[in-house]
Design a protein around this nucleic acid. Sequence first.
DNA 1: AATGAATGAGGCTTCATTCAT
DNA 2: CATGAATGAAGCCTCATTCAT
Lengths: 210, 210, 210, 210
Amino acid sequence: MATPRKRARPPRADAARNRELILAAAEVEFTKRGLRAAVADITRRAGVAKGTFFRHFTTKDDLITAIVEPHIVNLASIGERLVGAADPGAALLEFLTEAAAQRQQRDISYLLRAGVAPPRVTELRDDLLATISRLVERARTSGALRKDVTATDVFLLMCAPNHVVESLPDAGPDLWRRYLAIIFDGLRPEGAHHLPHPAPTMLEPTRLRR
Amino acid sequence: MATPRKRARPPRADAARNRELILAAAEVEFTKRGLRAAVADITRRAGVAKGTFFRHFTTKDDLITAIVEPHIVNLASIGERLVGAADPGAALLEFLTEAAAQRQQRDISYLLRAGVAPPRVTELRDDLLATISRLVERARTSGALRKDVTATDVFLLMCAPNHVVESLPDAGPDLWRRYLAIIFDGLRPEGAHHLPHPAPTMLEPTRLRR
Amino acid sequence: MATPRKRARPPRADAARNRELILAAAEVEFTKRGLRAAVADITRRAGVAKGTFFRHFTTKDDLITAIVEPHIVNLASIGERLVGAADPGAALLEFLTEAAAQRQQRDISYLLRAGVAPPRVTELRDDLLATISRLVERARTSGALRKDVTATDVFLLMCAPNHVVESLPDAGPDLWRRYLAIIFDGLRPEGAHHLPHPAPTMLEPTRLRR
Amino acid sequence: MATPRKRARPPRADAARNRELILAAAEVEFTKRGLRAAVADITRRAGVAKGTFFRHFTTKDDLITAIVEPHIVNLASIGERLVGAADPGAALLEFLTEAAAQRQQRDISYLLRAGVAPPRVTELRDDLLATISRLVERARTSGALRKDVTATDVFLLMCAPNHVVESLPDAGPDLWRRYLAIIFDGLRPEGAHHLPHPAPTMLEPTRLRR
DNA sequence: AATGAATGAGGCTTCATTCAT
DNA sequence: CATGAATGAAGCCTCATTCAT
């Protein structure tokens, strides 16, 4: 690593800058056209050449991962902080609100594609799941969450509010809050009815076992 | 030559058969790759030539409509029947269960794409929405549904259980029932909290005005 | 359905009728879309199946030949009659007028494609050329036609008025008469200037030599 | 502009070269098959990939425009120069000679398709028509042109010599001169007969009103 | 003999990715 | 390293022609 003495120049500076330009442009394009936005459009918006794009990202999927990563990390750290909150039920709701607010801009659904995700994303997903697990545990214990839902349930439901709203092209930017509220009411103990199917387990990473 | 007496004569039996082969293949491919599955893959799976596809469907969108239409019609008629059921709350739940069970096989989300759908689909959507409206009305009146949700809410939430589950490639075929139960609990009056955003209105067709 | 006795019926009758239906439909479609009108459109208009089309015509080119043939024959016979007319100059003009009037409806240019035409068309072309040759001969002798133009010249110029007009999508149906008049004036002896290139000879059929 | 020192580096030398290869190949193919020559054939002849074609031309129509444009522009400027010539009649003939000489290589008939042409071509056509208008005006005034023909007439007759010759696959490269001479004789005042149809007006652009 | 379904070779265009400059 | 031209595999769709019924 390090390339210690190339010369006096800071050769990394504008390389790093290009990377940021591409990421920013990509978010705009992905928001406009979805994940099928063309690489050419992204580079045009970023003001770099296509070759530069592939120097930084190898693959379009790579870019997507790179975009998603900081948001996952950020979300995990928010979750981490909320684990210590005074009101565990409010903490879980706030976490889900943050998650949905973020996804409203970036399509994180990619992250959930359990089987096909690249390793880095799987790793991030596991981390996030671990955090959710602790939030859920506390909420359940405190009586704010029905007893029969698991961290995986919450993880899977996390993006549902956004998806519901995506069907509507002219939806206001905050409509997802309405559906998050409804779904969250469904997670509360009050008025909970029996669940007809056991919780899925296939996302549990080994590390969670411990 | 002479066709040594094959049998009675299938006048267009094989045309109808090809149509079914294509529809079946399309459902498989759409399930695997989403609506962006290639026509060529569909025809290959169906064992017909590409030209045959376009003899039957004019357009790829046409195929999607053809796949979706009978399900919507069926769903609407199920809803229509349930409007007369003794228990309005149970009727609504059953309706949503049917809807999700169907969508588990065909990607009906296409139907919800409000603005861009072909006219026939818009028409079907409006019919369905009208039916849901009546189910919701009765459920609300009977006290089985919270007061602050509308037919459009229910319509939009209709496919959420499936979508939640889609993220999981190895999900059991009935896992969606779990999330429908949770979401439906969120629609009940018990434990309902205030909704932070007004219901969307952009789907209301004139005909609903009655 | 009837068909009581399979016998004495005239089986050729509706076959011939179908042929005419196809020819009529083809002329309409060719007039509307040019020679690239689709066979499917022609058969639809004719009210016959595509298979029937190919029973009658083998090939789309075949149809075109079949359409062109009677017009050429007709034109040749008109020319033949005009050979005996009192005023050879007027006769030639009338011939060209007939030719253009016909071509206004059918694209006879196909006929002129010297090298690639099917044998039947070549034969027809030769006949027509022979007739034109006699018309030209008389007109030249009578002083109504400049000395330096040949039958081949007249043959080649024959469709020019139509072509000129084809560029104009909204041209009136008789505009070609204007350009025929101009071109014919160019063929008159009055004010004729020297021609910078010898007349082409490649169309002369052996039979003309005699 | 600038580029003062040509020097080393061919910055896009080969891109420009490919563009020329494609244009040259297109002219060959268009000459052979007409405007319906396939893009694939053009690229194969040019020795480039299909993608390269669309990098340079966006659309097949674009290519056609690109082929036609310089010739139209060139023709217009030749016409413009000839407006100042001493002998207006000779000037008009020379203009038509240039036009036909050019069209012998590129299929300019595309240009004439009045209604359907892309805007750029319509614009070019209008310019050209304006120039022709002035040539015609002067020729008419000087007595070299019959009184009853308009600029639109000349414009429409412009390509007739080529078309006449196109029917003959083995025509010598200069045969068109023969038919231009004949047609031009038809445009002279000597021996002019009455024209049976008024001149078309649909091409007159507003700008000609001047 | 008629029917119309099936065929499959193309046609135009897009786009992720590679590579010469 | 950046650049942007080149690549070529798909993608959707059309249409003359063949073939089973």
